[in-house]
Design a protein around this nucleic acid. Structure first.
Lengths: 206, 206
DNA sequence: TATATGCGGTACTGTAGAGTTTCGGATCTA
DNA sequence: TAGATCCGAAACTCTACAGTACCGCATATA
């Protein structure tokens, strides 16, 4: 993954080798990716959106594939703050607390990006890994945490299939965006929680 | 959708306008689609696999997009015989009876095809419709039937969310193939049935 | 101010693939 | 057999885009 730290040391003379435009270019790449998919995306589109020259892009990444992998890997985790998860005392409370307009919006864009990468995922292991680490795993991990907490406090049975249940919401959300082309809105998420997840662990909606 | 009926009437003289090669070309298109995705697929590949000339393809379909839509729309429904669904008397029995090597194999290929079309689905409403009718809806419909039957015989509660529950298995299977790149095998399907679907409708595995 | 360097912009090269055209051979009808 | 038509193959055009080369400006160092 690219480091977006401070500029590196000066060269012999002259300006620092700052690569100041990297974040703009990566953001532009994600935008274009979400709108047109991997094959539809051109380096010219990315450069234009970042108000950068095409050469600047190639100075930093040696190919389109590398740029895309890096863009996905550097994707901001703004939607999930894994260190400050809600802890409401009930499984339903925790799950519902994750539904926020900001979070929904962010997740939807990531799913659009994922849609544009699906056919590439099976051909580029590095990309598959980046997508998994940046989009998939964080969400699954959050659900796992909520389920384990619920087991610990005795709210749900200890022998339920945590791994499969943690995949449930990401799976259905992906399917809804990628295949059904419908929005993952509050209504859908509540129906999922109250109609599937809670019943599946032996709880029921209030 | 293209009709694959008998040859049409003879022209003034000479050979019938039979379009005999249509099925081979459509099958070849589906094979290439499953292997390389929409953007990776070239008309030359399809023609070569069907042992046909490129011109023959274009005599019949005016563009790559049209060919793909038609191939998906004409896709054989070999895996699901909607008129002869199992009826074992229990929901679990019905769901398990759908797990057959033949059916799994067939479903997996369709999911591969879907993977190659995902990024195109959002740009071509005709393709979205074809994919839905040929791959998605049949499966959802089967699950709906099983759930309704179970409600009618009093096996499960009448107020459960049939629509969402019917999407569960197709969603998780798609996710598994498209994103996780894992096989949808018997083991996975049994874990899904016994670990999620049955608990979600208030039943438990034997 | 002088110099080195990164940058935006643009023009360029090379290639891949969509779609077209042509042609010789095969096959059907009469 | 003769006439009409379809087919496979291959050559062709044209466009789009990946990747490269270059230039003049801006900016930071000294």
């Amino acid at each position: 993954m690219t480091q977006l730290d401070e500029p590196t040391a000066p060269t012999k003379l002259g300006r620092k080798r700052d690569h100041t435009r990297d974040p703009e270019i990566l953001d532009a790449a994600l935008d274009v990716l979400a709108e047109t998919g991997y094959d539809g995306m051109t380096i010219d589109m990315v450069a234009a959106r970042a108000k950068a020259g095409k050469a600047t892009v190639y100075r930093r990444w040696s190919s389109k594939a590398e740029l895309v992998v890096d863009a996905v890997a550097c994707m901001k985790r703004t939607d999930l703050d894994v260190d400050h998860l809600p802890d409401t005392g009930t499984l339903r409370g925790d799950l519902v607390a994750m539904i926020k307009p900001r979070s929904i919006e962010d997740a939807e864009k990531k799913l659009q990006i994922m849609a544009g990468l699906v056919s590439m995922i099976s051909r580029d292991p590095g990309l598959a890994e980046a997508v998994n680490a940046a989009i998939v795993e964080p969400r699954v991990s959050v659900n796992r945490t909520f389920l384990r907490r619920a087991i610990e406090r005795g709210e749900i049975a200890a022998d339920c299939d945590v791994e499969t249940l943690a995949l449930l919401s990401p799976s259905m959300a992906s399917y809804r965006v990628l295949i059904e082309q419908k929005p993952v809105d509050r209504e859908f998420l509540l129906a999922l929680i109250d109609g599937v997840i809670l019943p599946a662990v032996g709880l029921k909606a209030p």
